[in-house]
């Protein structure tokens, strides 16, 4: 999975295209929906955080760069959530605006506050390395919709990774103050790396349910279970960790900084366990849609 392999996308996947396919009968199974929901929530929450930089960037140009990256990632979120929703007859907006905190499945890295610019860059670097290897692997998914979403996303993430890398180097090798802040940003985000690369609970439970069906005496008579295995469909993040370890510590050293040795948080974002900062962020994201349902402009 860690092979640097790129395949030309056959078509550009957009949320609107997925919506059309859903009208034509496309529907994710429950377990594929759960998997896409997790990936969609990661992207949605990170995009919302990046949006907080709009009108707050250190320079107009950087404001636009972060907004641009946020919008790319929002596009990934919309595709994943539209597809996930097809499993339960829900739209992307139902999922984004009308779920409560414990129903969100994002890993905790993404919901952390933006902090200062250096902390945002630290998170974006970790996230981009993760997305880069995740989407390159997901391009080969047996699920054609997931593969197409990943194929579109991978090109965009390429640029996000470059943007974070450039800033890591500049802040790390800049002034004493910028190096200090970059180091603090890395130290603050590092505890969330282990959770990022932990197993997908939905993959584990789908595998367990398939195994239990197979071992039951009536296995032969059971029709194809809706909660089917995600084997060949989902990517196991644990398999991507080696790539992170090969890339990120080296970059940090090139930036003249120290690879953090912090411990890890307990995690559990994929199970609906979130950190303190998530609630207020969610409230801000959802308030308009909840007070004025169906509002458009």
């Amino acid at each position: 999975m860690s092979v640097k392999q790129r395949q030309a996308p056959t078509g550009i996947m957009t949320p609107e295209l997925i919506e059309t396919e859903i009208k034509g009968g496309l529907a994710a199974t429950d377990s594929v929906g759960q998997y896409a929901l997790g990936l969609g929530d990661d992207a949605l929450v990170l995009a919302q955080r990046l949006g907080e930089w709009i009108a707050n960037g250190p320079e107009l140009e950087e404001d636009i760069a972060l907004g641009n990256i946020g919008l790319d990632i929002l596009g990934h979120a919309r595709s994943f959530l539209t597809y996930a929703g097809s499993a339960w007859g829900k739209t992307e907006d139902d999922l984004a605006y009308f779920r409560s905190e414990p129903e969100f499945r994002c890993r905790q890295l993404f919901e952390q506050p933006i902090g200062d610019f250096a902390q945002t860059i630290a998170r974006q670097l970790i996230a981009s390395v993760y997305f880069d290897s995740l989407y390159r692997a997901l391009m080969h998914s047996a699920d054609p919709t997931l593969a197409a979403i990943a194929a579109k996303a991978t090109k965009e993430v390429d640029y996000h990774l470059d943007h974070s890398t450039q800033w890591l180097l500049r802040l790390g090798l800049g002034t004493d103050e910028s190096a200090l802040r970059m180091q603090r940003g890395l130290d603050a985000m590092w505890p969330f790396v282990a959770e990022l690369y932990s197993a997908e609970p939905v993959v584990e439970s789908a595998a367990a349910s398939v195994a239990s069906v197979a071992s039951a005496a009536s296995a032969a008579s059971v029709a194809e279970d809706d909660r089917g295995s995600l084997e060949g469909i989902a990517v196991d993040p644990r398999a991507l960790r080696a790539e992170f370890d090969a890339v990120v510590p080296l970059l940090i050293e090139q930036a003249g900084l120290v690879v953090p040795k912090t411990g890890s948080v307990r995690g559990g974002g994929r199970l609906g366990i979130h950190s303190e900062a998530f609630g207020p962020m969610l409230a801000e994201m959802q308030v308009l849609a909840r007070q004025h349902p169906g509002a458009s402009w």
Partner: peptide, 20 residues
Amino acid sequence: SLHAPDETMAVRNARDLYTR
């Protein structure tokens, strides 16, 4: 035109601003 700290970042900012 645009502002950027150095030429490498200027090319990136130009990509964001003028090739959207």
